[in-house]
């Protein structure tokens, strides 16, 4: 892609990373690791790929997004705020009792959220329902869902995969965030769900494997997914959990804990240095 576009996307992704840190730090709780790993993907989705309108969040023909790994809501809230669905001032209220930014996405309370998620394994299925609705109604909107690698240990993920292929949901694009870590340790050690590529292929998916932090690869993958007819696509995105904050990268412990003031300052400095 053109350098100017790439620079702009990188800048937005860095801003989203800053927002994620701000949210989780202000809440003293939340999930920074898996939020940081999807920063590029969610940036590309909201700033290039998806047809959405912040002024009309319930627009019937919009593309849909379901964050099946709902605990990484800080990334989604950051993207929605940067896009203009709600004020950036709200981000520092994440998980507070007087905020609409719930610990996990709430479609009733937060503009731009297409499905309430958080309990793992369920969001992917709801995305299948949205994609099926588009087929029934003859509409050309697309549905995107980000599924966690640990989440793929849930049986319902594979029920959903079976359903998506059976009903030839080529308007559905699944992104598997392959960051390799879950709460109890490395995904392959806790309960090995690999090989994802062969499994999704066997379930009837078109499979694309990319570096989930490379915007050129992300762009090419989404373009390829759109060209595939008759079957759903999964983009297996190799990512780094905690990406962009040195002490969080590839550290299991940063799945669900918040940085203290000192750690927050260091993280902000590191991200700002890349901008």
């Amino acid at each position: 892609m053109e350098q100017a576009k790439l620079n702009s996307l990188k800048k937005t992704a860095a801003q989203i990373r800053l927002d994620i840190l701000e949210e989780v730090h202000a809440a003293s709780s939340g999930h920074p690791g898996g939020s940081l790993s999807i920063a590029e993907i969610i940036t590309y989705l909201y700033f290039e790929e998806m047809n959405v309108d912040p002024a009309n969040p319930k627009w019937a023909d919009r593309d849909r997004f379901v964050l099946s790994k709902g605990h990484t809501a800080p990334a989604l809230y950051a993207a929605l705020a940067e896009k203009g669905f709600f004020s950036k001032d709200e981000l520092c209220k994440l998980r507070h009792v007087d905020s609409f930014l719930q610990g996990h996405p709430d479609m009733k309370g937060t503009a731009g959220i297409d499905m309430s998620t958080g309990s793992l394994g369920l969001g992917f299925s709801t995305a299948c329902g949205m994609a099926l609705a588009a087929k029934i109604d003859g509409k050309d909107y697309r549905t995107y869902t980000i599924v966690g690698d640990g989440e793929s240990e849930e049986g319902q993920v594979w029920e959903a995969a079976m359903f998506a292929a059976h009903y030839k949901l080529d308007n559905l694009c699944v992104i598997l965030d392959w960051n390799g870590l879950q709460i109890d340790g490395p995904v392959t050690e806790v309960m090995n769900p690999t090989p994802h590529d062969k499994k999704f292929e066997a379930f009837g998916f078109h499979v694309i494997s990319i570096d989930g932090h490379d915007f050129d690869a992300i762009e090419a993958a989404f373009a390829e997914a759109k060209s595939v007819k008759g079957k759903p696509t999964v983009i297996i995105a190799k990512t780094v959990k905690g990406k962009g904050v040195s002490y969080m990268e590839n550290q299991v412990g940063w799945h669900g804990s918040a940085p203290n003031d000192e750690q927050y300052a260091q993280g902000v400095a590191e991200i700002k240095a890349t901008m």
Binding site: M115, F124, S125, C128, G129, F163
Partner: peptide, 18 residues
């Protein structure tokens, strides 16, 4: 198919889409 959990979630997605 015999996948009731998926069915209920799919139903939710369909309903969310109107």
């Amino acid at each position: 198919g015999i996948a009731e959990g998926n069915m209920m979630s799919v139903a939710a997605g369909l309903a969310a889409a109107g």
